[in-house]
Design a protein around this nucleic acid. Structure first.
Lengths: 357, 357
DNA sequence: TAGAGCCTGGACAACGTTGTCATCAGCGAG
DNA sequence: CTCGCTGATGACAACGTTGTCCAGGCTCTA
């Protein structure tokens, strides 16, 4: 007997059978509530959404039916009908990076203030994965997207943006499309940080940063070069090292520039991951080496010496971007803009060490 | 003229009008693709989903139409039809807390391996907000929920769980319902940490922890008491302080137990937030005070002295929980279980300081 | 050459909600 | 007493997709 019955009441497309009190795995719908309350479908909808035009008595009956059945509105259907999902997507590089914690919290808070949920994913610095994620989020019909780009070509988002997906890029600019961008002043911050070292007497200063294809890394390198040039110092190639922030590579890079014929007396590190590794390297050295790092790190003040950093305000980045996103959705925005937030030099000791001879 | 035409081709329920190349804000649907490709609706569906039974030639025509129109499947409709959303929800306390970074990354990775997206929200340690979030996620029909509970009564989730929402609690147990729980061995970890201090000669040991209504805080306090009792030490009330982990309160608590008639010679801190604040307090003291903290913290090895901690594996917590969630969805699971992961004592110096007299 | 069987493709309903519109009862005014 | 109005209520279609099922054309074989 391949077919038990010619026609089942409901298609049994949901396989899970749990020891439920009532229907197996099938949730009650407004139709069920309506039947139980003895009212029409639309009346239930009105009650659920707090729309006016329902007698207190009717409302009570509906509420009772909702309670009794454990009804919960199916937002998928609602979204399908209304066109807006009240959710935004956040794509970042790595949820576990302490820099992104405050940023995503800020994004979440602004979203929450607008009644939206946050869906997020990590690109792991892989452009393909970024695209895959972004498009998956668009297929879910998120209302907007906050993207910390891994790739440098975002034309794939053009149809989505045209279709109304509000999009803001954070921390790094969008590639090959015109879109809202919220950045830190990476160039200025790095230049100031390096200038600080120069002001304390250093001339041979090393730079260790992330892969040069990452915009922030490139900008910070540019800031380093600018500060050196402003001071009339010519930079040796061996003083600069860009690449993955994997501790092993960073360690080797640091050790290389600290030895050799022209060893650096100070190091400028391009992000928090690099800074942490370099602190470990410097801790193992007999002579003190000055250090300024981009990005603040927790407990930086308690190390000996305290670590001087160029701090950026990750929360402000996230907040600014997300507020802008919702203004795009409001329609109270003119055109794409590039917003640059200032950085702040926090002196704690490591940047004020004199060059040791 | 209030009405421009008796019947518009499409209801203009979407207000946004962008300078789109084609239809304003209206995305193409499979119907549009079908029309353009000169095929039936279902054929488009087949191509989009890679189902068999389509001639290469037809498939090519459909693909071209998809490209040309910039079509992207509307997953809301798909979800409505299929009943599964391929997304899971994560509710934690605070996205910005470094402890939750690795945890949520692990959750995301497992979700990704199962083709699911991650929606997350922060409860800010507020039970009402936790419930609001959880139910909002259920309304979105997430397939499952990973919850780091803020509240201690989760009966509100019963109808959802019955309806098939896979649910796993992490870091703290569920309240008043029977559900999967993945925890660290908070009791054992704290006991070992305190025993370590005792082994190094301490008798007057302080405990500073989070609010006692939080399960982890209570368990760690219990571990502290157990270790003290095992060593035959009777604990003075003034040695223990539980409450919010706000730096101001923690600072006062630490200062109080470090002065007075019976000052402690060592402190056990109940979580990473507390540890960081106490390190700052201790750094300002003339005499050394031993410290062991629950939770590992970055750079703990570089402080003077290094901070001895009871480390828990946040990533393993998230991974274990999420894998279990998907096994619930597979149906390859018997019943709710309580899984306890071990902690690890990492000695770095601060816990090995002798009592200073 | 005809029949059987297979493969491709399309018509149609259904998922659960919301917007539109019609209906109906009750009521006040003329 | 009746007309028209108001406010509550429900019937119905639509959102965009997928599952079911049937039709038509093709190939293969007897």
């Amino acid at each position: 007997m391949p077919e038990p019955a010619p026609r089942a009441d409901r298609p049994a497309d949901r396989l899970r059978d749990r020891p439920s009190g009532t229907r197996y795995g099938n949730r009650p719908t407004m139709k069920d509530v309506a039947a139980r309350a003895g009212v029409g479908l639309k009346t239930v909808s009105r009650v659920v959404n707090g729309e006016p035009g329902v007698t207190p008595d009717t409302e009570r009956r509906v509420q009772e039916a909702i309670e009794a059945l454990g009804f919960r509105r199916n937002d998928s259907a609602r979204v399908l009908r209304k066109g807006r999902t009240a959710s935004i997507g956040l794509i970042l590089e790595d949820l576990a990076d302490p820099f992104y914690g405050p940023l995503s919290r800020a994004v979440e808070e602004v979203a929450r203030a607008h009644g939206a949920l946050l869906i997020n994913g990590s690109s792991a610095e892989d452009p393909d994965r970024e695209q895959e994620l972004a498009l998956a989020l668009c297929a879910r019909r998120v209302d907007g997207l906050v993207v910390i780009p891994a790739g440098d070509d975002h034309r794939y988002l053009e149809p989505e943006i045209r279709a109304g997906v509000a999009t803001v890029f954070v921390d790094r600019p969008a590639g090959r499309i015109d879109a809202d961008v919220v950045l830190s002043d990476n160039f200025g911050g790095a230049r100031d940080g390096v200038a600080h070292l120069i002001a304390h007497g250093h001339r041979r200063i090393g730079f260790i940063g992330d892969m040069p294809r990452i915009h922030t890394a490139a900008e910070r390198l540019r800031g380093y070069r600018a500060a050196m040039e402003d001071a009339g110092i010519s930079v040796a190639d061996s003083w600069m090292s860009l690449g993955v922030t994997d501790p092993e590579r960073v360690r080797r890079a640091a050790e290389a520039m600290l030895t050799g014929p022209e060893p650096v007396t100070a190091v400028f590190t391009g992000n928090n991951r690099v800074t942490v590794t370099v602190i470990r390297v410097l801790a193992g050295l007999p002579r003190p080496v000055a250090l300024v790092g981009f990005d603040d790190i927790e407990l930086a003040d308690l190390l000996q010496p305290g670590v001087t950093v160029v701090a950026q305000d990750a929360a402000a980045l996230g907040r600014t971007a997300t507020e802008r996103l919702f203004r795009q959705l409001d329609g109270t925005l003119l055109g794409p803009e590039r917003i640059e937030l200032p950085t702040r030099l926090v002196t704690r000791g490591s940047g004020e060490l004199p060059p040791s001879v």
